[in-house]
Structure formats: structure tokens, C-alpha cells
């Protein structure tokens, strides 16, 4: 792959992914400037890699992962070493637009849903976000968050397990 071709692909990838990375970063609670810097670094690295571009197996995963790592580094630097959460926490905002319910109730539901989503573990939130927004595979999410695939799966279905126990109780 020539340099020109490589550069062109990088620009296409930027066009496609800059918005997604930015939206994800906003949900992770970072400032605009930090996100700009992180996106800058991700794509500059990609451009400088040149011939290695064809070796990247899953470009989406690669971009999210290096973006995530940049943000993780930033947080580490700011807080110094020490206690650091395993997975970055995420805040999800939702919109409710059911034609059959009025706006006041919509607002109430929005609050309920957002507070419920906030109660999920950071891992669950990241998994829900990635699955819902980009239909990512568990293996991809695990690679991005730098955890094992098992960890993502386990966290996603944890709530489900709890509920099933309760239900069995009632039947008995």
C-alpha cells in the first residue's frame, strides 16, 4: 500500500470515526479539549504507522482501543498513580419519544431510565453502550476495555442471574 493510499484511507477513517470517538468520550465525561487531543494522537499515530495499516485486523476495535487507552492515560496522569478504577465509568443520556405518552411523563421516564443506567457497573454501562450503538461483539468490547471477554459477558448477564434466582423463589 502506497503512502498516498494510506493517507487517503486515514482521512476516510477520520471522517467516519472522529464523531463516534468524540461521542463516546463525551459519555465518558471528558472535556472537549482532552477529546480533541486524544483523537489527534490516535489518528497521527495511524498516519505514521503507514505500512502497518494493512496489518490491523479490526480497525474499529483498534481505533476505539487506542482512544480509550489515551483517555485512561490522561486520567492516570491527572490523579497520579494509586487507586484507579478498572474500567472508565460512562454516563448515558436517553431520549424518550413515545407518541402515546405526554412530554411530562416522558421527562419522568427519562429520569428513571438514566438513574437506572447509572446504577449499572462501569463495565455493564460500557458493554450496553457499545452493543447498542455499534452492535459490537463481546470480544471487541473486551479488547477495547482491555479486559477478558469472560469479564464482559459476566458483567452483562449478572443482573439477569439475580432476577432468575428471585423468580425461582416465587415458584417454589
Amino acid at each position: 500500500m502506497g503512502k498516498k493510499e494510506n493517507d487517503r484511507i486515514c482521512v476516510e477513517l477520520y471522517d467516519k470515526y472522529a464523531d463516534r470517538l468524540y461521542a463516546y468520550g463525551i459519555s465518558l465525561g471528558f472535556d472537549k479539549e482532552v477529546l480533541h487531543d486524544a483523537i489527534h494522537d490516535v489518528f497521527l499515530n495511524l498516519l505514521l504507522k503507514k505500512n502497518q495499516l494493512k496489518d490491523i485486523r479490526n480497525i474499529r476495535c483498534y481505533l476505539f482501543r487506542s482512544f480509550y487507552n489515551k483517555l485512561m492515560d490522561f486520567k492516570r496522569k491527572k490523579r497520579g498513580e494509586g487507586n484507579m478504577e478498572e474500567v472508565l465509568d460512562l454516563h448515558m443520556t436517553v431520549s424518550v419519544s413515545d407518541k402515546l405518552i405526554d412530554t411530562e411523563y416522558e421527562g419522568r421516564l427519562k429520569k428513571i431510565l438514566e438513574s437506572m443506567l447509572d446504577k449499572l457497573s462501569p463495565m455493564q454501562k460500557n458493554a450496553v453502550y457499545m452493543r447498542y450503538m455499534y452492535e459490537m461483539e463481546y470480544s471487541e468490547i473486551a479488547e477495547i476495555l482491555n479486559v477478558t471477554q469472560h469479564a464482559v459477558r459476566k458483567f452483562v448477564s449478572k443482573g439477569l442471574g439475580k432476577l432468575r434466582d428471585k423468580k425461582d423463589d416465587i415458584i417454589l
Partner: peptide, 14 residues
């Protein structure tokens, strides 16, 4: 379920 069908995760674009 019907309400959840009308729910979207929002994202803020650049």
C-alpha cells in the same frame, strides 16, 4: 416494551 422501543441512547457529535 413499547416505551423502551421509543428510547434512544443519545450521543453528542463533534
Amino acid at each position: 416494551v413499547q416505551i423502551m422501543n421509543s428510547v434512544d441512547l443519545e450521543s453528542e457529535y463533534m
